[in-house]
Design a binder for these strands. Sequence first.
DNA 1: TATTAGCACTCCATCGAAACGAGTGCTAAC
DNA 2: GTTAGCACTCGTTTCGATGGAGTGCTAATA
Lengths: 339, 339
Amino acid sequence: MLTNRQLQILQVIVDDFVTSAQPVGSRQISKREGITYSPATIRNEMADLEELGFLEKTHTSSGRVPSEKGYRFYVDHLLQPHMIRDEEISQIQSVFNHRIGEMEGLIRESANILSELTTYTAVLLGPDVQQHKVRKFQIVPLTEQTAVAIVVTDNGHVENRVLTLPQGFSPSDIEKMVNILNDRLIGVPLHELHIKLEAEVLSILKQHIAAAETIVQSLVDVSISQKEGKIYYGGKTNMLNQPEFHDLNKIRMLMDLMDKESQLQSLFQPNQVGIQIRIGSENNNLAMENCSVITTAFSTGDEQHGAIAIIGPTRMDYRRVVTLLEMMRSGLSNALTKH
Amino acid sequence: MLTNRQLQILQVIVDDFVTSAQPVGSRQISKREGITYSPATIRNEMADLEELGFLEKTHTSSGRVPSEKGYRFYVDHLLQPHMIRDEEISQIQSVFNHRIGEMEGLIRESANILSELTTYTAVLLGPDVQQHKVRKFQIVPLTEQTAVAIVVTDNGHVENRVLTLPQGFSPSDIEKMVNILNDRLIGVPLHELHIKLEAEVLSILKQHIAAAETIVQSLVDVSISQKEGKIYYGGKTNMLNQPEFHDLNKIRMLMDLMDKESQLQSLFQPNQVGIQIRIGSENNNLAMENCSVITTAFSTGDEQHGAIAIIGPTRMDYRRVVTLLEMMRSGLSNALTKH
DNA sequence: TATTAGCACTCCATCGAAACGAGTGCTAAC
DNA sequence: GTTAGCACTCGTTTCGATGGAGTGCTAATA
């Protein structure tokens, strides 16, 4: 167990390093208000903290830097609430006052504000479309051979896809088909759609329409190809300002990561409650070695939810980010549920 | 007018510099096959070419580097066709064999292949949605107060938006409204939609439905907020490999540019035919000082068109890119028009 | 026993000088 | 008109010297 003094010193080191990005020396610590012991004492404590794995040195005669374990301890036990300036609070509020019911714009805007206030990168994951339930099918003919299939969900989401019609597929066939689809599939969540289509609906359709098979196949394709949730960014390039990312290789890996939606999905664990913090290697991703990710989920009503993530260097201002994130989470949840 | 020898030297310098990224010296040139004069002669010619503004030095005793004017002359007069390897050709072809009629996937894939083959950044601009014509309106109710409005265009594009319904708006009102919209607006191009809505349709609707005004306003919003054309990327981070972008500031400016869709639109001049090359400052954009952009338009039938742009350093392999771009342009135009 | 002053030591960062190499411009010879 | 030769310039690399920040250890102190 750490002594009070060790706790205090660890806290000061993290706080200092977060703002300065420079290794913290004993003299520097001794000058901080609230510190009553001499540099020599602090050096002894630091040596102990290093032995315990909370601190590291960049080289033999450098000051100390928090280790991952040090950050972990800090966020678990030493995180104190952070004062957010009034203007910043009202900046966040302004997003929600704007327009209501326009989810996409709201989320997009939130990502921008968050990245601006944190100076890190904000990633917002829209609600998982796969959970939405079918409200209505529609097939609109375009030419002799093509039509566009439309699925509207109960949340107002619209999926669509151009279909190639089989030879001799008549308008009345389309009508029949749409009726059957709407009869059988309303209320089915999108992620079950392809199963229902193949297992139940296909055989029924076949009885009425000759060439139903190819079209059903296309519909199955659509429902499989849907992404989990849409991703929105704010401050994608903010990482370039962080001194630890003056290395082209790291930047490249990070940028590539952010362009790969599939990889990004793994950042989120939307089933958890509250705020999660993953530090450095806890992300299990080489590109994120020097990054921490702070995530939380927000609710959009109807058991739907989205998630917010802030990606910053491990030397991130955890206090501030956690506070901002919590404000944004509750604000978003409110704005999106009440309408 | 330049002598043949000067032309030859300019060509060699550009070709060499494009591949090596190093200033080209007289000795190096003299060793190239086809060059029969001594380094001293070449030095004299280079001094003349520099005086004429085609070459530059990075410092007093360095080799020569093409100036913007030099590149301009090169692409205008010295560009020779480039051999593309068979495997690369079939790599391009494979995109078009894949699936037909699925425009979005096709364009996305093309962007990736192009960026891979060029090692630069590919930007594809999808066809301008504003030109599409309305095929069908649809309003699907969600709750008492909300519904989703859907516009299908003759190209199979679907726009949609959640509407807040006025108090006491009944299902039969919706039906009436949809009928009038479909009566009056089919065939109208999207970019004229808001005008028609306000000028013609609004007054008719008002006669039949009390609270038509707010809904029409929402529809107007939708048709105004549509973007010009969707933008697809390939190889966004490829620029990081170019030695001229080892500068964080430049990278930042470029990345920011690419995240701003609005700015990117200005890269394209889709009304022009053939291939356009803009070199360095010709782009009128600080972030693109050291970049060249090669663009061309592809047709998607029905007077619709999209555009391709390759963004690379001014020290770009113009020969290769121009050839690849032309192949991709014709391939895309074919694939998208014939179906 | 806990704390602190003092001191030797380590390592990084910065600077300037020297050596080197690539390339030029100019002159004079071919 | 072309080229060999040479002095010169400038960037790059290397090396050692210097200074500063910070440590660990020891011995003195409260």
